[in-house]
Design a protein around this nucleic acid. Structure first.
Lengths: 330, 330
DNA sequence: TTGTATGCGTTATCAC
DNA sequence: GTGATAACGCATACAA
C-alpha cells in the first residue's frame, strides 16, 4: 500500500503538500495539485483512514441509539440515516440499547474516545451520565427529550393526534378509549395532549380512566384491548398510539367476536407496511420515517461541523390515512 | 485525559510494561501488574482506542451487509449480531446495501482499509470485486452463496420446505402453488427443492408452471396471488417463501371473496411477529432469527482470530408452526 | 505557496 | 521480566 510519502516522492513535493492537496486544496496552486493528483493516480494511493482518524481525533462515523432495531418504524428511520450518512461520508455504528441505560452510556462514550463523532438518539433520554452536561454533538429524532435544547426532529404529534381524534368524533364517537405508549415517553404525552384538545374542542368530557398503557408491542395491544372491552359503558372507538398495538387490539376484538369497525373503531399510528394489509386495513397516521433519518443526519452533520442550524427544532408533516378500521358509531 | 505515559510514571515502570499489562498480562509479574492497575485506577486511564487501532491495524468493528434493514426478519438477525458483538468487544457498522452491488463493494472495502475487521453478509453474493478472491474474514448468514467455501450459518431450508409441504399434503392438498423469492437466491432454490421432494415423495406431479416469483414484499404477494387465482384448475393451497408474501396473498384472497383456509390454504415462512396476529393467523416456519445473528458473530470472531472453526457450515433448527391459515382441501 | 520538523498514543522489537 | 526506543501514517505549526 502506497503511503503519502511515496506520493510526495513521485510528485516531487513534500508530504505536507500532498496532505494539503487532499484536505485543503485551496491552499495549493493548481499546478502542484495536478502533479500530486497524477502521482496519487499512479501509485494508487489511498489515505490511511486509521492514521487520519488518529491524527485528527475524528472517525467519520456516528452512532445511532435505538431502543429496538427490530421495530419496523425505527428500522425505516435508520435506513434513512444510513443513506444520508453515506452521502455525507459517514459510517453508521449501530447502538441497539434494548432500553437499557447501561448500553446507552456505553455507546455514548464512543464519542468521548473519538470512535464516533456524533450521536443520533431515537429514544427520549439524555444519553449522558451527567444529565446536565451534553458532551457530544447529538440530534434527537422521533421521540424527543423534554425540557432540553437538544436539536430535534419530530412529528407534530399533537396535531396528528388531534386530527385522528377529530376523525373519530366526526364519525359520531364520543366514548373513546386510548391505548398509550409508556407514560414517560414524550410522544405519548404529545399525542395524549392532542387527543384531549380535540375532545375538549368538541365539548366531550375527557376521562383519564379511559387511558390504558402499553409498551408498543402487539401483545400489549391485545392486553390493553382486553381491559377496554371490560369498561362500562364500552367505548365505541380506540385510539392507539402505534400500529402494532392497534393490530393487537383488532386481533382481540375479533377473538371476542366484535366486528371492526361495526362494533368498535380502532386507529393506529405510524402506517407501517402491514397497516394497509390488515383486516380491516388500518386507519392510521403516516409518518415520513426515512425522512426522519435523513433530516436527523443532515442536522447532525451541521452540528458536528459547528455550523449554525437554521432550524433547531424541526417538525415533519404527517398524513391521516383513512382506511376501513374506522366507521360510524352505532 | 491520561495517557499511557502518565500511568507509567506513576507506577514507576516503562510504558512498554503498561502496554503489556493490558495486552499480554501473562508476560508481566503479578506484582508489577498490581502496581500498574493501581496507577491506571488513580489516573483514570483509558487506552486511546484510535491510537491503538492505528498501531495494530485493527478497529474492533465489523460491518454487516444487509439487503434491507427494514425487513423484519433481518432486523432481528442484526439485533442478535449486535448483542453478541458487544459481548465480544466489537462494534457493528451498518451496511444497508439496498441490493446495490456498488454499495456492497464500498462497505467491503472498509476491511481493506482496516476500518472493519470482518464482514457478516446476509445476502447471497460474494461481496468482493474479484469474485474469486476472498480478501477478508467473512461469514455468510441466512441466505448463503452457492459453490463457495465461505463459513455460513443457515436454516435447513430444504427440510423446512419439505415439512411444510408434507403438512399441506396431509391436509389433502394436491394442487399446490408456490410464491417464491427471487430466482437467484439460494434459499429460494433450497425451499423449492424441499417442496419438490415432498411432492414426489407423495407421488404428486410437480408442475413448474405453478411457481410464481415475488420479491419478498407484501405487494409482490398480492400480485402473485392474483396470478395463481387465475390458474385452472385453481390450486387449493399456496406455499409462500416468506410471511410478507403470504400476508399479501391472504389479503388478495379475501378481497376476491375467498375464505382462508376454507377455499384456499396459505402458508408463510419466517414467523415474523405479525404472523400470529394475522387473520387468519399464519401457518409458517419459525426461524431462530436472533440466533442467526449471535451464531454468525461468534463464528466471525473465530475467523478473525484465525481460530479453527469446528463447524464451518452450521444449520439452525426450524419449527413448523401450525395456525389457522391452513385447513383440509375441499 | 511550499517545505521542515514534530508529535499524536500506542505497540513491538530488541537489548538487558 | 522489564526498559529504551523506533515506528505506524498523517496533519499542522512554523519557518522560509
Amino acid at each position: 500500500m502506497a503511503t503519502i510519502r511515496d506520493v510526495s516522492k513521485l510528485a516531487g513535493v513534500s508530504v505536507a503538500t500532498v496532505s494539503r492537496t487532499l484536505s485543503h486544496p485551496d491552499k495549493v496552486t493548481e499546478k502542484t495539485r495536478k502533479k500530486v493528483h497524477a502521482a496519487i493516480e499512479e501509485t494508487d494511493y489511498k489515505p490511511d483512514v486509521l492514521a487520519r482518524n488518529f491524527r485528527t481525533r475524528r472517525s467519520s462515523s456516528i452512532v445511532v441509539l435505538v431502543p429496538d432495531i427490530a421495530n419496523p418504524f425505527f428500522s425505516r428511520v435508520i435506513r434513512g440515516i444510513e443513506k444520508q450518512a453515506q452521502i455525507l461520508g459517514y459510517s453508521v455504528l449501530l447502538g441497539d440499547t434494548q432500553g437499557m441505560r447501561e448500553r446507552e452510556i456505553t455507546y455514548t462514550k464512543m464519542v468521548n474516545t473519538s470512535q464516533a463523532d456524533g450521536i443520533i438518539q431515537l429514544d427520549s433520554h439524555i444519553p449522558f451520565e451527567d444529565q446536565n452536561k451534553i458532551t457530544a454533538p447529538i440530534v434527537n429524532a422521533c421521540d424527543c427529550v423534554r425540557g432540553t435544547d437538544l436539536p430535534s426532529v419530530q412529528l407534530d404529534n399533537i396535531s396528528a393526534a388531534e386530527d385522528m381524534t377529530d376523525h373519530l368524533i366526526s364519525l359520531g364517537h364520543k366514548n373513546i378509549a386510548v391505548i398509550s405508549g409508556p407514560e414517560e415517553h414524550s410522544i405519548t404525552n404529545d399525542r395524549l395532549s392532542g387527543h384531549i384538545k380535540a375532545m375538549e374542542k368538541a365539548g366531550i368530557h375527557f376521562d383519564t380512566s379511559k387511558v390504558t398503557y402499553g409498551d408498543y408491542s402487539i401483545q400489549s395491544g391485545v392486553e390493553a384491548a382486553e381491559k377496554i372491552f371490560n369498561m362500562f359503558p364500552r367505548p365505541s372507538a380506540i385510539f392507539c398510539m402505534n400500529d402494532e398495538m392497534a393490530i393487537g387490539a383488532i386481533h382481540r376484538a375479533k377473538q371476542i367476536g366484535f366486528s371492526v369497525p361495526d362494533d368498535i373503531s380502532i386507529t393506529g399510528f405510524d402506517n407501517i407496511s402491514f397497516a394497509e394489509f390488515c383486516d380491516p386495513p388500518l386507519t392510521t397516521i403516516s409518518q415520513p420515517a426515512e425522512e426522519f433519518g435523513t433530516t436527523a443526519m443532515t442536522m447532525l452533520y451541521k452540528v458536528m461541523r459547528e455550523e449554525e442550524l437554521k432550524q433547531k427544532y424541526k417538525l415533519l408533516p404527517f398524513e391521516l390515512i383513512t382506511r376501513q378500521s374506522t366507521g360510524p358509531a352505532k
